[in-house]
């Protein structure tokens, strides 16, 4: 479970000497329960990605507290934060962010390699996973040899491979056509059901947001709950 308390963040903008603070997140307080699919929806520039970056530890908030599974992550050092991400989080990005020099298989393998897991164990794990997300046929392809939908499946597999309790997805369908978008959303829903993984989906698209169990609306740096859409 993720709990956010009184989170504030602002950016400095403008030329040197004439900077001004632009508040982006204004006193956010909310919780994300285990096993939920939560979506955060809002217009472009409303501060959704900034919120995700802070939750993920890419960015240290100006003020406020974040607890992930009882651990206060908002005061982590860079190294602590990296270690925590490797063990607890998976990431899915709008533009997939695959390593161009690695095959689909190797891309999925990467987090396990970083964790120092042995080659044989990695191979077994990745093989299973490739099968369950339907990528076995293209596992030796490089990212530029894959369609957008396939790339996003690879990226989801990469996020899954370490069995993290939480996966953050920033506009996961932003680069996909509507048909593939539906596929990817279905995959997310089924992974949430079968594996109990918490998904935090960020989107500007109301339709995508509606696939979540709980929708938060971001407007002017303030978050409001849009109501539970589907019972679990």
């Amino acid at each position: 479970m993720i709990s956010i308390r009184n989170l504030n963040h602002s950016f400095k903008v403008g030329k040197k000497g004439k900077e001004r603070q632009v508040p982006v997140l204004k006193g956010l307080t909310f919780d994300i329960a285990d096993g939920e699919i939560v979506s955060i929806v809002g217009k472009s520039g409303s501060g959704k990605s900034t919120l995700l970056h802070i939750m993920a530890g890419f960015l240290t908030p100006e003020s406020g507290e974040i607890h992930v599974q009882g651990v206060q992550t908002s005061s982590f050092s860079e190294v602590e934060s990296a270690k925590f991400r490797l063990d607890h989080f998976g990431f899915v990005f709008q533009n997939f962010q695959l390593m161009p020099g690695l095959t689909a298989f190797e891309n999925v393998e990467l987090p396990l390699t970083l964790k120092g897991i042995s080659k044989s164990e990695r191979q077994e794990k990745v093989n299973d996973l490739m099968q369950s997300v339907g990528l076995t046929d293209v596992q030796d392809h490089y990212p530029n040899e894959l369609s957008g939908g396939q790339q996003q499946r690879v990226s989801i597999a990469r996020a899954l491979v370490t069995d993290p309790p939480i996966i953050f997805a920033d506009e996961p369908t932003g680069s996909l056509d509507s048909e593939t978008e539906a596929d990817v959303l279905l995959l997310i829903q089924s992974l949430n059901k079968t594996r109990g993984i918490t998904f935090v989906i960020i989107t500007h698209d109301d339709e995508v947001a509606q696939t979540a169990n709980r929708v938060y609306r971001m407007h002017d740096g303030v978050l409001t709950e849009g109501g539970v859409q589907h019972a679990i």
Binding site: V79, L86, D87, Q97, P100, L114, R158
Partner: peptide
Amino acid sequence: TREIGVMKAIGADPKL
């Protein structure tokens, strides 16, 4: 740069 960013995002230790 982008690849390093991805590795750091996934959780690679800066020292690594």
